[in-house]
Design a protein around this nucleic acid. Structure first.
Lengths: 203, 203
DNA sequence: ATTTTTATAATACAATCATATTGTAAAAAA
DNA sequence: TTTTTTACAATATGATTGTATTATAAAAAT
């Protein structure tokens, strides 16, 4: 056989080309031929790596989610700095900040739209949701540890509000990246925490 | 000529058929032929009402936004009840609650995904954003009026947090409609307001 | 009553689509 | 060395696509 090729790397290259086509031309133009052209590959090579276009789409979304989870994991495993800094870092776990992250988040939105008519994509989205909830729970736990919330307090509503706030920022950040810079996000998170502290002093 | 037909009604019927195809098969399957079948019309009739497929998509998104704005307007113009009730009603201005609203919000997400590669859709999305911001500002003003916020206070950060919270709930409501019932949304909004009040007592 | 305008349908067509088929070169396995 | 396996390309194919063309019936305008 020819030079044994890294099949994962190959698939990822096809997936990222798919993202590019979706970003530049829209998801309805994400055809095998267009993906092949974007990836500088032949149609046959794409077919050699994926049995159908459906599988390309599914793989492309699952890779987006993997990337998001990786970033979140990297942030939650970075134990440098104080716990207060850790809390602030965690609160940004989903927010797309640099160009690459914004593009990925935009592609994710396209997949989210399709997930309502594609059960496989819906499952992937649910997986993403499950992971996000774990991260938000970590944030809530850290808030309790740092005295932002009472430890005995039932924090279910606090959880949902924080999660909505974070996902809302994601939606806004990918629509107005010039406004939603990292420092703007920091400012909002600080204000959010300050408000929790202010009301806590009151009980 | 034949029975003069209501051209707006006709266009809206095509637009809603487009929504259905997007919901059932995905935005990449929203072809003229599929839309025609869904609307029980001939391809020629679709073409008679729209010069191109592009225009159908644009019209379909603009109708979604009109519907959302209409609902928001209806809620903000309903002056029944106390101002506290009005505040709570306004906080739900974007949240999809019944089946129809959830479907519309899901279609909106599909258009949002495409808006990054279609300048016309992006403009429509910006229009929607502008309207939403007006509504959120109304809510902030009412919060000041009702003593939730200090009137002199610069409420820019408060504004962004509330707007993200609301848009985040939208994203969550259309993904988990069984969880995000209207009463759950009410509960979250009440808790949100209660927290503002608690911290305000402290200053 | 004749002409014109309009709503609607049927169908045609080239482009693009997803996928199948076939071929080839290279290297691992025998 | 021979065989087999694999990476990759070229091209074919039938379905679907957006759009153009043509036809028709009905009613408004003349």
């Amino acid at each position: 056989m020819p030079k044994k090729v890294d099949v994962v790397e190959r698939k990822n290259k096809i997936a990222t080309a798919t993202w590019q086509v979706i970003l530049n031309k829209g998801i309805d133009k994400a055809s095998i031929q267009n993906i092949a052209e974007e990836a500088n590959m032949s149609v046959g090579l794409i077919q050699h790596n994926f049995p159908s276009k459906e599988k390309i789409i599914h793989y492309a979304m699952s890779l987006i989610i993997d990337r998001m989870e990786e970033r979140a994991k990297a942030r939650s495993h970075a134990f440098s700095g104080t716990k207060e800094e850790m809390l602030r870092r965690l609160m940004k776990f989903l927010i797309p900040i640099n160009y690459e992250e914004i593009m990925e988040a935009r592609v994710w939105i396209s997949f989210l739209g399709r997930s309502f008519s594609d059960p496989e994509l819906f499952k992937l989205q649910q997986k993403m949701d499950g992971y996000s909830r774990k991260m938000v729970q970590m944030i809530i736990n850290l808030m309790k540890e740092l005295g932002y919330l009472d430890k005995e307090e039932d924090s279910q509503l606090e959880f949902e509000i924080l999660y909505s706030f974070i996902d809302g920022m994601v939606i806004h950040a990918l629509q107005r990246p010039d406004f939603y810079t990292e420092s703007k996000v920091d400012q909002l998170n600080d204000y959010y925490l300050k408000n929790i502290k202010r009301r806590k002093r009151n009980g």
